[in-house]
Write a protein that binds this DNA or RNA. Structure first.
Lengths: 112, 112
DNA sequence: AACAATACCTTGTAATTCTATGTATATATT
DNA sequence: AATATATACATAGAATTACAAGGTATTGTT
């Protein structure tokens, strides 16, 4: 597990990207997928994830549809048009930032 | 300029790395160097930098020596032994995190 | 029946960077 | 000489955001 501060600013980009790739996902599914894709190194807590999904919904980046699985309600989240646009912007910014950071901190690894 | 949250968790790694490479630096010099190395994309505000340097000093990672340049006092910061150890740990964690994040968000760019 | 896993939620906390503001000296420009 | 810009430090409070802790309820496993 990484220092939790490292994740800041990247969580929404991760969510946007997962939803863009998978069409629609529910919260628990997102947390499991992140855990799986990161080999257990990024463990999204539900205390982080659900408020983030709600905020992104409030900001117009996501919508959701509730479906009943037996008696249980699942919220499937998907990107809005605005969310798709933001995804492109966020990922571009993140990519640029990661490149800059690599250059700054690991100059010997960053090939021009 | 990047969304300010992105820098979180990386600032101390940047400072530790710069001091490790340059021996000793003063605050203003650090901010200018970061600006220069990042092509103006990371602009450390002094409201961020000086408190960070103070905290890292309090945590035993840095020490400083004051020198007078004319009438002006400069604080030259340098790594302590503990700071050198932390630098290795922080950079390893950061490198691992960046690799994980790349895999998660830019899978098509991350070659196994 | 008991437990773990699934699936959602809320409140308050902690950590960290930033904004705004302040002080003062040194250098460059007009 | 006066003014503006750059240098160099600092602090207080705001904003953001992931987390911890706690809660509810259903489903699957032993």
């Amino acid at each position: 597990m990484y220092s939790k501060e490292l994740l800041k600013g990247t969580l929404s980009a991760i969510i946007l990207n997962l939803l863009a790739e998978n069409g629609r996902m529910y919260g628990y599914e997102i947390s499991q997928r992140v855990k799986e894709l990161s080999d257990g190194k990024i463990l999204l807590k539900d205390g982080s994830l659900y408020p983030a999904l709600q905020k992104m919904t409030k900001d117009g980046l996501l919508t959701y549809k509730e479906e009943f699985i037996g008696k249980r309600v699942r919220k499937y989240y998907l990107l809005t048009t605005k969310g798709e646009e933001q995804k492109v912007l966020y990922l571009a910014e993140l990519k640029d930032f990661l490149a800059t950071l690599n250059k700054l901190v690991f100059p010997q690894l960053s090939l021009a």
